[in-house]
Design a protein around this nucleic acid. Structure first.
Length: 801
DNA sequence: CAGTGAGCGAGCTTCCGCTTGACTT
C-alpha cells in the first residue's frame, strides 16, 4: 500500500497528479462535497448556535467508505481540495467524516495543476483553516435558512412547490424588471443622414453627427444639399490600438460560446467537461484569469514559432470581479502546441475557441491608424464626418477577435471602413445622400449568457452554479427561453440623387427574438411578492453585502454565529409576519367591463396557469366563462381585445362535414381534433378560416410522417409498434416508449418479448422498486438523486396526479 | 399538452455549491 493518500476534488485532476507524484502517493478524488445538511427541518439547531446536522448522501456513501479504508492504511493523508471557502470546507468534512488524526493529516493547496506547483505545495503543508471553514458554514447555513423559510411562504401565498433563494430569486428579478423596461419603452424615431461620396472603389460614407426628429428638417437638409459644394474641412489622423481580452473564465467562456457558437450555457459546460476529462483543457469552472508560469512559457514558444517574436507579449491579467476566489487557473489548452482535437464537432469548435483566446491573450496589441475627416457643406453650418480605420499591425487579431453583445447593432459600421486618400480642401462629388428614419432601441432581453454576465457582475452565484441556476429558474416555470416573432413597422427614407429628393416608405421587422429569456406570469407574481415582503433578500446587493461579512469571518474578525443571528432574527420575524398578514398573490388584474354583457372581466393566475374570467365567481345562477392565456401573452400586458379573442372558438363540432373534426386553440397554439387525436396547425394557417380540405391535408401529412417512423407492427395488438426514433429504434406501446435492450436485434423481437418489456416498465413506473425506476425520472435535471432514492413512492404518486 | 378554475386536506415541495455519470424518443 502507498504511504501517502492525497485527496483532491476532481477525478481528472487526481489522474494528472498521480502521474506527477510516483508510487509513494495514491491520489483519489472526493467528487466534490462528501457531506451536506440533512434535508429535514432539524438540519440547523437555531437556538443552539445554529449547530448543523450533516449526512453523507446516498450517492457519496461508496466513495466515502473507500476513502476511509485508504486513509486507515496510509501513513499520511494529504487534503488537497481547492483553496477557497468551499474547498476548505471539503477538507474539513473529509477530516471529520474519515475520522482522520491531526498528526497524520496535512492540508495543502495549489492553484494550477503543474508538477512544480504540486511539489511546492507538498513542501509547504499547513493545517485546516477553521476561519475559512466557518465562513463556508455561514454561507451554507444562510442559504438553507433563506431558501427553506422563503419557499414555504410562497407555497402558502402563491402556489405549492415554488422556490426562492438568494441566487435564483435575483436572477428572476433581473428578467422580470428587464421585461417591464421593454414594455415601458417608447421608441423614438429620428432621421439619420448618410452621404456617399466618390465612385467605385474610391467611394466612402460620411454621416451627420446630429439626427433630425422631424421629416421636414431632414427634407430641408437634403434640399439644401442639392446644389451645395462639399469639401474636406479637416483631416485628423492618429494611431489607435486594441488589446486582447483575458483568457476565459467560466462566465466569459459561456458568453463567447453563446455568441460565436450558439451554445446554451449548459451545452458549453458539458462540452468543456469532456475536453477537461480527456486532458485537453484545464479546469472549466473557474473565476480566475491567471495563467501558470508553465503556460506562459508554452504560449510564448507557440506564438514566436508560429508568428514570430513581434507577435508575442507577456501579459498578466487581473480579475475585475470582487467576488472571485481564484482557486484555479484561467481556462486554457493543456498543451498550446495542440491546435485541434479529436472528438465531435462541438468539442472541436469549443477547443478552438479556448485555444485562440488563450493564445491571443499573450500576443501583442493590434495597431490602427484612425482617420476622421470633417466635410464642410457650403449651404449648411453642420459638417459631415467620415471615419476610417487602417490596420497597421494585426497583432493578436491574427488569431482572435472577441465579439460583443452589440454586434448585431450595425448603426456604426463605418468605423472600420477604409477611406481613400484625401487632402484638406479637396472638393468632393456627392453620389447620394439619404435620410433614413431610425428608431431607438429598447434595452435588450437577457440571453442565458448575458444573464450569467450580469449575475457575475453583481457577485451572485459561482462558476459551478451559473448553468444550474439558469436551468432552475426555467424548470420552476419562472422564466422561459423562447423564440418570438417580431412586428413589422414602417419607416421613411428620403434619398437625394441626381439633384432630386425622393421619398419612399419601407418596412422592417422589429422585436423578433431568438433564445431570449422571458418572464412568465408566475415568475412576475413571485417576484413582486418577494420584492414587496422581502426586499432585503432580493436586493441586487444582498449577496455582495453578506460576502463582505463572510470575508470577515474568513479573516477571523467576525464570529460566524453572531453574523448569522444578526441576519436571521429580523429575517425570521419578517417571514412570520408575512405568513400571518400577507394576502394571497394571484397577480389579478382588472380588464374592465365585457362590452356585450356588462360583466366584469379580469385576468389572474389559476391552478393551470393564467386565465381570463368573464363574470363573477360568487354568482350562483350563471357560471363565469374562462379562457387560458396563450404563449407570449402575459397578465400585465394583455388587452381587453386580446382577452375577448380567447373566447372565440374557431370551428365547433358540426361545422365541418366530418362531424368528428373540430378546430380549437390550446395553450400551445391552434390544433385540429379528430376523434381523439390532435394535430397542431402549421404556422401561418388561420384557425378561424381554415377549410375542411386544409384540415384533411394536415391530418394526412401527419399520418405519413408517423408511418415513416413505423418499422413493424404486431397482429396480436395494434398498439404495439416498432418505431424509428432519433437515437435508433424503440418500442412504442400506447403512451409507453421502451428502449430496446442491448444485444437484441430490433426486427427479431417477438410480440411476447415486447409485451414483457412493456409490462415490466409499467410495473416499474407504478411501484418503483429501487434505484433504477427512481433515477429514471428526475423531472428536473438537478434534484439530487438522494431524494429520489429515499422516497421513490412519493415521487411517483406526485407525478401521476 | 389540448377547454378546467369550489373546498376539503394528507403529504409533498424548497436553498447554494462542490463534483461526475446515466440518461435521453
Amino acid at each position: 500500500m502507498a504511504k501517502n493518500l492525497l485527496i483532491v476534488e476532481s477525478p481528472a485532476k487526481a489522474k494528472t497528479i498521480e502521474g506527477y507524484l510516483g508510487k509513494d502517493f495514491t491520489v483519489k478524488s472526493s467528487y466534490g462535497h462528501i457531506r451536506d445538511l440533512v434535508k429535514s427541518e432539524d438540519a440547523i439547531d437555531i437556538p443552539n448556535n445554529f449547530a448543523q446536522r450533516y449526512e453523507v448522501p446516498a450517492d457519496k456513501k461508496q466513495i466515502v467508505s473507500e476513502l476511509k479504508k485508504l486513509a486507515k492504511e496510509a501513513e499520511m493523508v494529504w487534503l488537497a481540495s481547492d483553496e477557497d471557502r468551499e474547498g476548505e470546507a471539503i477538507s474539513w468534512h473529509l477530516f471529520e467524516t474519515l475520522g482522520l488524526k491531526e498528526d497524520k493529516t496535512k492540508r495543502i493547496v495549489f492553484h494550477e495543476i503543474t508538477k512544480p506547483a504540486i511539489i511546492k505545495a507538498i513542501e509547504n503543508p499547513r493545517k485546516i483553516d477553521y476561519n475559512l471553514v466557518n465562513a463556508q458554514q455561514a454561507r451554507r447555513v444562510l442559504d438553507r435558512l433563506v431558501g427553506f423559510e422563503l419557499s414555504p411562504v410562497l407555497w402558502k401565498k402563491v402556489k405549492p412547490s415554488l422556490s426562492a433563494g438568494r441566487v435564483q430569486s435575483v436572477a428572476v428579478r433581473l428578467i422580470v424588471e428587464r421585461e417591464r423596461e421593454i414594455n415601458k419603452f417608447k421608441a423614438e424615431a429620428a432621421f439619420r443622414i448618410v452621404a456617399i461620396f466618390g465612385k467605385g472603389r474610391e467611394s466612402f460614407k460620411a454621416e451627420l453627427p446630429e439626427r433630425f426628429a422631424e421629416q421636414e428638417q431632414a427634407e430641408k437638409f437634403l434640399n439644401d444639399c442639392i446644389d451645395a459644394a462639399f469639401n474636406v474641412k479637416s483631416l485628423d489622423t492618429r494611431p489607435t490600438k486594441r488589446s486582447p481580452a483575458a483568457p476565459f473564465t467560466t462566465s466569459t467562456l459561456q458568453q463567447e460560446a453563446s455568441r460565436k457558437l450558439g451554445f446554451s450555457v449548459s451545452r458549453t459546460m458539458s462540452v468543456a467537461q469532456k475536453l477537461y476529462e480527456s486532458g485537453k483543457i484545464t479546469y472549466m469552472r473557474t473565476d480566475s484569469v491567471n495563467l501558470s508560469e508553465t503556460a506562459l512559457t508554452a504560449a510564448q514558444q507557440e506564438i514566436t514559432s508560429a508568428y514570430g517574436d513581434k507577435y508575442h507579449q507577456f501579459r498578466k491579467y487581473k480579475t475585475k470581479s470582487a467576488s472571485a476566489q481564484e482557486a484555479h487557473e484561467a481556462i486554457r489548452p493543456t498543451y498550446f502546441n495542440v491546435h485541434t482535437v479529436d472528438g465531435d464537432n462541438a468539442e472541436k469548435r469549443l477547443y478552438e475557441l479556448i485555444w485562440k483566446r488563450a493564445i491571443a491573450s499573450q500576443m501583442s496589441e493590434a495597431q490602427f491608424e484612425k482617420t476622421t475627416a470633417k466635410i464642410e457643406i457650403s449651404t449648411r453650418k453642420e459638417d459631415l464626418v467620415a471615419n476610417g480605420e487602417v490596420m497597421k499591425f494585426d497583432g493578436f487579431l491574427k488569431v482572435y477577435l472577441e465579439s460583443s453583445d452589440e454586434d448585431e447593432d450595425n448603426t456604426s459600421d463605418e468605423n472600420n471602413a477604409i477611406l481613400p486618400p484625401l487632402n484638406k480642401g479637396q472638393l468632393l462629388a456627392l453620389q447620394e445622400m439619404t435620410a433614413t428614419e431610425r428608431y431607438s432601441r429598447p434595452p435588450a432581453r437577457y440571453t442565458e449568457a448575458s444573464l450569467v454576465k450580469k449575475l457575475e457582475e453583481l457577485g451572485i452565484g459561482r462558476p459551478s452554479t451559473y448553468a444550474p441556476t439558469i436551468s432552475t429558474v426555467q424548470n420552476r416555470g419562472y422564466v422561459v427561453k423562447e423564440e418570438r416573432e417580431g412586428k413589422t413597422r414602417n419607416y421613411r427614407v428620403l434619398t437625394l440623387k441626381d439633384k432630386a429628393v425622393k421619398q419612399e416608405q419601407k418596412t422592417e421587422n422589429t422585436g423578433a427574438e431568438k433564445n431570449k429569456l422571458f418572464p412568465t406570469d408566475i415568475g412576475a407574481v413571485v417576484n413582486d411578492f418577494l420584492v414587496q415582503h422581502f426586499k432585503g433578500i432580493v436586493d441586487f446587493h444582498f449577496t455582495a453585502n453578506v460576502e463582505k461579512q463572510f470575508d470577515e469571518i474568513a479573516q477571523g474578525l467576525t464570529n460566524w454565529t453572531n453574523m448569522i443571528r444578526t441576519f436571521y432574527t429580523p429575517f425570521h420575524e419578517g417571514v412570520q409576519n408575512t405568513i400571518e398578514t400577507a394576502d394571497k398573490a394571484r397577480g389579478e388584474r382588472d380588464l374592465g367591463i365585457h362590452p356585450e354583457t356588462g360583466k366584469k372581466m379580469s385576468v389572474r393566475i389559476g391552478r393551470y396557469g393564467p386565465f381570463v374570467q368573464i363574470g363573477d365567481s360568487d354568482n350562483e345562477e350563471e357560471k363565469p366563462l374562462y379562457a387560458s392565456l396563450r404563449t407570449g401573452q402575459m397578465i400585465e400586458t394583455i388587452t381587453q381585445e386580446e382577452a375577448l379573442e380567447l373566447f372565440k372558438l374557431p370551428k365547433k363540432a358540426g361545422e365541418f362535414e366530418d362531424k368528428d373534426m373540430t378546430v380549437a386553440i390550446g395553450k400551445f397554439g391552434p390544433y385540429i381534433r379528430h376523434n381523439s387525436s390532435f394535430y397542431s396547425l402549421p404556422k401561418g394557417l388561420d384557425p378561424m378560416t381554415v377549410t375542411e380540405e386544409q384540415a384533411i391535408e394536415i391530418i394526412k401529412e401527419k399520418r405519413i410522417k408517423d408511418a415513416e417512423k413505423l418499422i413493424k407492427t404486431f397482429d396480436e395488438d395494434p398498439e404495439m409498434k416498432l418505431l424509428n426514433g432519433r437515437w435508433g429504434p424503440y418500442i412504442g406501446y400506447g403512451k409507453l416508449n421502451i428502449k430496446i435492450p442491448k444485444g437484441k436485434e430490433p426486427l427479431q423481437l417477438t410480440f411476447e418479448e415486447c409485451k414483457a418489456l412493456a409490462d415490466a416498465m409499467e410495473k416499474d413506473t407504478k411501484k418503483p422498486a429501487g434505484k433504477k425506476a427512481a433515477a429514471a425520472k428526475p423531472a428536473a435535471k438537478k434534484p439530487a438523486t438522494k431524494t429520489a432514492v429515499k422516497k421513490p413512492a412519493a415521487k411517483t404518486t406526485a407525478k401521476k396526479k
